[in-house]
Simulated assay, not measured.
Amino acid sequence: MNAATYWVDLLQAQVRTVEGRYRTRIVEAGEGPALILLHGTGGHIENYARNIMPLAQHFRVIALDFLWHGMSQTEGFDREVIPHLVDQVTDVMDVLGIDSAAVEGQSLGGWVAMRLALLHPERVSHLVLTTTMGYEPDAGSIDGYVEPDWSKNLASSLEVLRDPSIENVRSRMARILADPARLTFEAIAVRQALYRQPALSAVQQEFITEYLSGSTIRQHLVSDGDACRIEQPVLVYWGDQNRTPPSLGLRLSQQVHNGRFHCAEDTGHWAQFESAEEHNRVVLQFLQDPASTDIKEN
């Protein structure tokens, strides 16, 4: 795929807004079993621009903008966050007539995907958790692991929303890649265009403040005890340069009933973008054959 012009490839996809309990922008492509893609904090559909069409060769792929993100609904912010995003996913599924789907979530999206699988197990066939947030292992269970102080990112995250210049957006996005040189101008320009929307900028400032420094959202963290109740086949996909180390992802894959773990080299937090070809190959292999021996087992 030409990294500089990924919307050329997405011309074969359908972009629209669906109305149910919420107003949600989606992109849809392909036929077959449903696969829902959930993006990370501050992100949007385009986070999966390098993945949608390759995955759509085998699945009916639906990527969506979360509430208070992208071009979805900006009204009604609630600091609990996670239950509303879970409800939004089931709302989109209901509108589209999807009873059950495989779900991939990256970062915040992984947190939502785990809670979706716990609250509505009948609606989730497989889980792909890509550099997921929201997992809190038992204290002392991972040697040397200390959760990063996410609040240190708050000032810069608010600054880019207040002043979405190209340089501020570039700086904000660069920290989620192992190699910032891989960040394309198109990726920056799309993020900038969205952050220039006054309503989105305002709600994102509320959102990121709670996400990085609030306590209300943390009521919905996924513990080891919670993870042990996830029975669907799970692929935990990590980047070796992710801010939280591969040992965290490996631990999560060991807590779920039916887990696999894969760590991409020279890859940061935005793993589905930075190692797109490897990601697409590994995810497709897992979804088509969850017991594949080519994916590292826990």
Rank of each mutant, 00 (worst) to 15 (best):
A3L: 06
Y6W: 06
Y6Q: 05
V8G: 11
V8C: 08
V8I: 13
D9T: 11
Q12N: 01
Q14N: 13
Y22R: 05
R25L: 11
A29K: 05
E31Y: 02
L35W: 11
L38E: 05
L38M: 12
E46G: 15
H58E: 08
H58T: 06
L64W: 02
D65R: 11
F66Q: 04
F66E: 00
W68G: 06
H69G: 00
S72T: 09
T74M: 15
T74Q: 07
E75T: 02
G76E: 05
G76C: 03
D78V: 13
E80W: 14
I82Y: 06
T90W: 04
D91W: 02
D99Q: 12
S100D: 14
G110K: 00
W111D: 00
R115D: 01
L116S: 10
L118G: 11
P121H: 02
S125P: 09
T130V: 15
T132M: 13
G134Y: 10
G134N: 12
D138P: 04
G140D: 02
S141W: 11
Y145T: 05
P148H: 08
L158S: 10
R162I: 07
D163Y: 00
I166A: 10
N168I: 11
N168P: 12
A174Y: 02
A178V: 01
D179Y: 08
P180E: 08
P180Q: 13
A181L: 08
T184K: 09
F185E: 12
A193S: 15
R196M: 15
V203M: 01
Q205Y: 03
I208V: 15
S215Y: 03
I217V: 13
I217G: 02
I217T: 04
L221M: 14
V222M: 07
D224R: 00
A227I: 09
A227V: 13
V234P: 09
V236N: 07
H257Q: 15
G259V: 07
G259F: 12
C263R: 02
E265K: 02
H269N: 02
E274M: 12
H279M: 01
V283L: 10
Q288A: 10
T293M: 03
N298I: 04
